[in-house]
Design a protein around this nucleic acid. Structure first.
Lengths: 329, 329
DNA sequence: TCCGTTTGTGTAATCGTGTACACAATCATG
DNA sequence: CATGATTGTGTACACGATTACACAAACGGA
């Protein structure tokens, strides 16, 4: 383990040039003799030299770091998108710094810390921080907000999701199957995303003269889906549960089957949201309001690139959801 | 959106002091009058000043960045540990840079890129990069390797996992239940981790005069577990499948049930490895060789702290696995 | 041959902090 | 009151790269 990394000045001495020339050897379009460049690159390889990205960032005013503000890493509903995005960033030589909000008491403090690293971009997936806080803290870095909070703010790009039509399709089918009494199992009580999703289904029901009869609040985990479904089914006679995400839906289905002997879709219809891979597993086969993850991340990447090139353009991209049919509804 | 961030020199002018004093106001233990400090902090808040971490890192030779080399974010078996570790890092004001190997063609290139950011620590969770590559690339930053590759290298700290005893317990139970013909479903063919895990079970079988009769190779996903189990059960008459991780075990269980009408544990015993939360879900209830994730991450954090303080100490920590009993074996 | 252009390289400033050193002012102590 | 320790602040340099500018050499066209 060589304790210290070699610097460009030292390499310059070794190669018999100045440190400016070293820098040029590593910059694709710069005036430098090809013989000199080859020699430098060879000496560099020999001594394990690579330009210090921290120093370069300081000079450049460009860090090539991207802050990803997420609720958690583990939750499958976000994980698939995170994975895709990280992949796309890496392909562009951008490095992601992950900020996990769910388990961190002082989220704003955490975001401030990341902002001191002069990140080039910020992508906010989490609904636990407000758009305004993100804008304030990253005031030099126009954030990309991936919540559905319907704010129009010049300092933010955002991606909106429209699931109204798909929710209508799903409700149509369930009602046709004879179900009449609906419950909604929310993720987080205060989340904008959750309120909007609930509205899609509430509207679809209203159009058919129905309403959400019972309600419960979980926290997007299997356990909360299980527990809340048990309570819900004990206190009201619903025959359909719309869940805030797929993982809770799986929990609710298990609760119905195990604790009350009710099977899907005959005794009770259960619907998830997100369209995670696990929802399609044979043992789950969930009916869910799903979003095309690839299209979603494409949109994020497009906003990043537009921002990178400083191109003006629409700040907002809207995506629509689809129904994915399984055996639970 | 204020386009530019204010610098310490500008703030110095505003506060009527020198930039050195600004710096001191933000360093906890430095000689500065408390009145001056308060005034500076107040002016700083007013103008949204915070010291530039990039510049500080350059000066300090300490970036407070940690590279986490993982296979993927989405895979639940790693995700829980990643989540825990990120949480612990954030509490120490360390920021994680995630490197996803699974979907990136040139993993070494990716690691070299991260190394140019002068990360303070490297934690390698992935079994897709060799220990030697990690050491070479991060030659100034003693990496912490979380594979089980049994190399003793002064330039590496590592965490080893011992599951021999737990594997023995599990085999004991399955054999007592009357099962005799075992298959092993590996994760990745070339992975050290996988070879070691397989050996635990093979040894436990050998002690009872049994052996692994059939073998298949997946890639740690549900789909590969499902597919490989179908093929396996068609070509050999096994009554127990040990899987390389929990997700594949769930896939294998679904395949047995759906494609061949075999139920666990009566017709076939299925065992997972990792002990992810999902394995304990009511619909899965998997018997699995599980690792205490908290203890595991505690060990990682301990190595990081020891490394931070430059304390010499054992480079290696060994953890033992436990059997978690479910209804699948 | 002469002059304008291109090419390759070095010098020095810059990015924004942290900190060693110097120095004045204050304080404690006999 | 003299002296030494302590406290608070400014000056100047270092961290490791990039880059504007300057300049010499090479080159091409008349």
């Amino acid at each position: 383990m060589n304790k210290r990394r070699i610097t460009s000045k030292e390499l310059a001495k070794l190669a018999g040039v100045s440190s400016a020339t070293i820098s040029r050897a590593f910059s694709p379009d710069s005036r430098i003799g090809s013989a000199t460049r080859d020699r430098i690159l060879s000496v560099a390889r020999e001594h394990g030299y690579q330009p210090n990205a921290i120093a370069r960032s300081l000079n450049n005013q460009r860090s090539r770091l991207v802050a990803l503000v997420v609720n958690a890493i583990g939750n499958p509903c976000e994980a698939e998108e995170q994975q895709l995005l990280v992949h796309r960033l890496q392909a562009r030589q951008l490095l992601p710094i992950i900020l996990c909000c769910a388990d961190h008491d002082d989220r704003l403090q955490l975001m401030r810390l990341a902002s001191t690293y002069q990140v080039d971009h910020v992508v906010v997936f989490s609904d636990m921080v407000s758009m305004q806080d993100a804008v304030d803290i990253f005031h030099t870095t126009k954030p990309i907000i991936v919540s559905f909070e319907p704010l129009d703010n010049e300092n933010v790009s955002n991606i909106r999701i429209d699931g109204a039509a798909a929710a209508d399709e799903i409700i149509e089918k369930i009602v046709n199957d004879g179900k009449k009494r609906f419950a909604y199992l929310s993720g987080t009580k205060s989340s904008w995303i959750d309120k909007l999703r609930r509205k899609w289904f509430a509207d679809a029901l209203a159009r058919r003269g129905l309403a959400i009869e019972a309600e419960a609040f979980g926290d997007y985990t299997y356990d909360s889906g299980f527990k809340e479904a048990v309570l819900l089914l004990h206190r009201s006679k619903v025959d359909a549960i719309i869940c805030g995400n797929d993982v809770m839906a799986i929990g609710a289905r298990d609760a119905a089957r195990r604790m009350l002997g009710k099977n899907t879709p005959d005794d009770i219809a259960i619907v998830g949201q997100d369209g995670i891979a696990m929802a399609a597993w044979d043992c789950n086969d969930l009916t869910t309001l799903s979003l095309d993850h690839v299209a979603f991340i494409d949109a994020v990447v497009e906003l990043i690139e537009r921002h990178d090139a400083d191109l003006p353009g629409p700040h907002s991209i809207t995506l629509t959801c689809n129904a994915r049919w399984g055996s639970t509804a």
